[in-house]
Simulated scan of single mutants.
Amino acid sequence: MTSTDTDPLLSLTWTDHVTGRRGFLVVDRLVRGVASGGLRMREGCTLAEVTGLARGMTMKEALHYDPERHPQHRYLPLGGAKGGIDCDPRDPAAYGVLVRFFRAMKPSVESFWTTGEDLGLTQDLVDRAAAEAGLVSSIQAVYPLLDDETAARRRLADAFAVEVDGIGLDELVGGCGVAESALAALDRAGLPYREARVAVQGLGTMGGATARFLTRAGLSVVAVADVKGTIANPAGLDVEALLRARDGHGTVDRATLRPADLELPGDAWLSADAEILVPAAVSYAIDAPDQERISARWIVEAANMPVLPEAERLLTARGVTVLPDVVVNSGTNAWWWWTLFGDVGPSAEEAFAQVRRAMRALVERTLTRAERDGTTPRAAAHAIVADRLPVMGERFGWYR
């Protein structure tokens, strides 16, 4: 590979003059002059982490671009980017850091970086901080690409106002995509849903929605991990009760647990007696020693970069299939743009139907390519991206 294949287009490091906290913006690639990627906030966030996430966003955009169906879609691909702030979102100073980060990044957000919630942040908080920093919107850079900006913004606002059984549609679409990825793998293997057990790390936006969709599909969630530890029940947890009992950071109130629910150490979810593991919290959650404890058949990466490369190599050698993050958790980003550009309307029914169709097709394409090439699903996804990026470059340009 040449340096242009691996190096990001732009990399910025910011230091907060009040707290000394650092923040990062990495633009991996521009397409049509714009790059898409969320903003995360967590203690220990690094430039290397954000750089990897930005490359992942480039891949997600490319994976959801089908050159053959291009004329049928209003939404066309963007580039990949990511932002990160090294700060605990629970820190009382965190919101001020977020506002100052947006003020520093204002020219980027106005011109070429569209962003939204990611690990540690909610969209409401991102919107509030962006407004306080003097921005029109955290996605305003994409507005010049819209046919009717007013109608598009209203459509997205209406979609964000939709709730399904007490949870916002914007929180649910990502979990719908993760769940559909898992279901596609089960269908391909011929395993009935009622025979599949699931362990989930993280009950925040992505993990909570994934647990809901999988439970409603007939699977049994037998373990859930949060910052306080792992909650387990071999007979199945009451996912809806856990969702009602969690706080804004996905931590479950233990006072609401049933007598048969067990409280175990935080890493106990790894060794849960389950067919599917869903890491849906932090990056780098499964390393080489961790993988020895895993007996699951599939790992479905709802979080970004949760399985380290050496761990994945060892898991693959043991027959464990890792469905990669760039495929599995790409539904949220795609839904934003489908809605804004008008490929789907502001309704849960349309959103879920489109996410399910797109994710199932993407998982099938990835697994079929992996079988054909004799590689892992991640290598197959990378190969699909490698096929599509030159087409995107020729069609839309490399920087504009």
Results as ranks from 00 to 15, higher is better:
Ser3Ile: 05
Thr4Asn: 07
Leu9Asn: 07
Thr13Gln: 11
Glu43Arg: 12
Glu49Cys: 08
Arg55Cys: 03
Pro71Trp: 06
Gln72Met: 13
Gln72Ile: 11
His73Tyr: 09
Tyr75Ala: 09
Asp86Ile: 00
Gly96Phe: 03
Gly96Arg: 03
Leu98Asn: 11
Arg100Gly: 09
Phe102Arg: 04
Arg103Gln: 14
Thr114Asn: 14
Leu119Asn: 04
Gln123Ala: 05
Asp124Asn: 10
Val126Leu: 02
Gln140Gly: 04
Pro144Gln: 12
Asp148Phe: 05
Asp148Met: 14
Asp148Asn: 13
Thr150Pro: 03
Ala159Cys: 13
Glu163Tyr: 02
Asp165Ser: 14
Gly166Gln: 06
Leu172Gln: 14
Gly177Thr: 11
Leu191Glu: 02
Leu191Ala: 09
Pro192His: 11
Val198Leu: 10
Gly208Lys: 00
Leu214Gln: 08
Gly218His: 05
Val221Glu: 12
Ala225Leu: 07
Lys228Asn: 09
Thr230Gln: 07
Pro234Phe: 00
Arg244Leu: 09
Arg246Phe: 02
Gly248Asp: 15
Pro259Gln: 07
Leu264Asn: 04
Leu264Pro: 06
Gly266Arg: 15
Ala268Glu: 14
Ala268Ile: 03
Trp269Ser: 08
Asp273His: 02
Asp273Ser: 08
Val278Ile: 13
Ala281His: 06
Ile299Asp: 09
Val300Asn: 15
Asn304Gly: 01
Leu308Pro: 00
Glu312Tyr: 08
Arg313Phe: 00
Asp325Gln: 00
Asn329His: 10
Gly331His: 04
Asn333Arg: 05
Thr339Asn: 13
Leu340Phe: 06
Glu350Thr: 01
Phe352Gln: 08
Arg360Val: 01
Ala361Trp: 09
Leu362Thr: 06
Thr366Cys: 11
Arg369Gly: 03
Thr376Arg: 07
Ala380Asn: 04
His382Asp: 15
Ala383Phe: 10
Gly393Met: 09
Trp398Ala: 15
